[in-house]
Design a protein around this nucleic acid. Structure first.
Ligand SMILES: [Zn+2]
Ligand SMILES: [Zn+2]
Ligand SMILES: [Zn+2]
Ligand SMILES: [Zn+2]
Lengths: 132, 132
DNA sequence: GTGAGTTTGACAATCATTCTCAGGTGGAAT
DNA sequence: ATTCCACCTGAGAATGATTGTCAAACTCAC
């Protein structure tokens, strides 16, 4: 059974407060800045646990870091992420789910899982880019 | 202009010889085992270059490593990968391309790029799993 | 309140990847 | 073929994220 410690709560709240995906390091820095004496290893462990329990989604940044986010739904979904400001939109796409399943099956693959993410520039950042 | 060194050739050939996606470390180990005196940093640089030039596809493993593969086509495509033996099938999916573009547009995002990969167990490995 | 099992955190250890820089080399010019 | 030099290479150091260690602190069922 998982125990309920203030450290886990702090990580959960910090995640909820963040807009987009954040790294363990980033979250740790933020917590320390706000005065929390939490340890780095604890942040890593808490995030890993939250991801396993389905309370957080995770993905690998192009630089190889693991990024986490507290999503509003625990149902299977994907993300549309602004690669400039991190703004994230949760998206569902039954068509893609079915495409993935049927594609795997057509090639004889079983137990298919998939990674589907879209990265772009959100409306605000697109406007900024034009002006800059 | 890029120079033509035996090191780059060795990396290219090693990549071509590999079935699925391989890490820089793995490729380096293989090259050294086969007697090549190539350096590790050189393998990293060669792979990064090949990826930029479009001669190799790359993706991030769940453990955060960068994996590379010499694909038969340089056109945009995705992969169906066996998470047991690494066997990889190249797949095209116009429907997914269009979905990604329209989804991004619908939310006001511009310059959309996407990551789409399917991981499963290939026919051979599925059979093995049942037997084991 | 107690005690056993869990969690924490400072620090060391890993591990992939990048950096540094002195020495080597491809290939264009001669 | 020889020269020249900007680019390439490689050994090892440096970096940075993540994980392992283990004694002390803490949770929670009893
Ligand atoms: Zn944005
Ligand atoms: Zn999905
Ligand atoms: Zn397989
Ligand atoms: Zn695509």
């Amino acid at each position: 059974m998982k125990r309920n410690t203030w450290q886990r709560q702090a990580v959960r709240e910090a995640l909820d407060t963040s807009q987009g995906f954040v790294s363990a390091q980033h979250l740790y820095a933020g917590l320390r800045e706000s005065g929390s004496p939490i340890g780095l290893a604890t942040v890593y462990r808490a995030l890993a646990d939250l991801a396993v329990e389905g309370e957080a989604d995770s993905l690998q940044s192009t630089e190889g870091e693991s990024l986490y986010r507290a999503c509003s739904t625990q149902e299977h979904h994907h993300h549309l992420i602004c690669r400039n400001c991190g703004t994230t939109v949760e998206i569902e796409a039954d068509a893609v789910e079915q495409w993935a399943a049927s594609t795997a099956a057509r090639h004889g693959f079983t137990e298919p899982r998939h990674i589907v993410d879209i990265f772009g520039l959100c409306a605000a950042c697109s406007a900024g880019a034009r002006g800059a």
